[in-house]
Amino acid sequence: MLLPANPPDLARIIVAFEALPHANVLGMTFLSLDHGRGSVKMPYRPDLVGNPKTRVVHGGVITALLDTLCGAVVMAAVAEGTPLATLDLRIDYLHPATPEETIRASAECYKVTANVAFVRGLAYHEAIDDPIAHCAGTFMLGTGFSATAAGTVAASAADAGADAAGGTGGGQPC
């Protein structure tokens, strides 16, 4: 799909994201990464349970997994070294995750403009057509930080958007 003029090194993005301290907590690993799309998985973790009665993982686990994947997918869709920061993220919880089962997620960056990248994703167990959660997010480009120095998403600064001169990913000004 999206391929910027100076495409990023996908292997380096995977290494950078899997090395993040909180990605380690989740036990998150990449299943695939292409320019503008990717998928990850994480094992069930009893210490990340949100409801001890049902043993379902906390919603924050799904949020963190999807946020990380979305950041990686955006980084893979824009020019090498483009810094980015999450502007917003919306999660719809479609049904509870099943205890003991591996959680997978897939996401795609479906539009890149001069300042903003738009991304959507799904979390699921075995079948993507039976999703646990859906997400839609936007990322500011040209602010935050880049994978070239082994950085990634996370923090986010809407107030830094004004100097987002990025625009390296092509597309229309947002």
């Binding site: 924050g60 935050g144 930080f145 950085g151 990634t152 998403v153 996370a154």
Partner: peptide, 14 residues
């Protein structure tokens, strides 16, 4: 372990 951005040492957005 909550760090999600090693450059800024920022907390993970998730």
């Amino acid at each position: 372990s909550n760090i999600g951005n090693t450059q800024l040492r920022a907390i993970h957005g998730g």
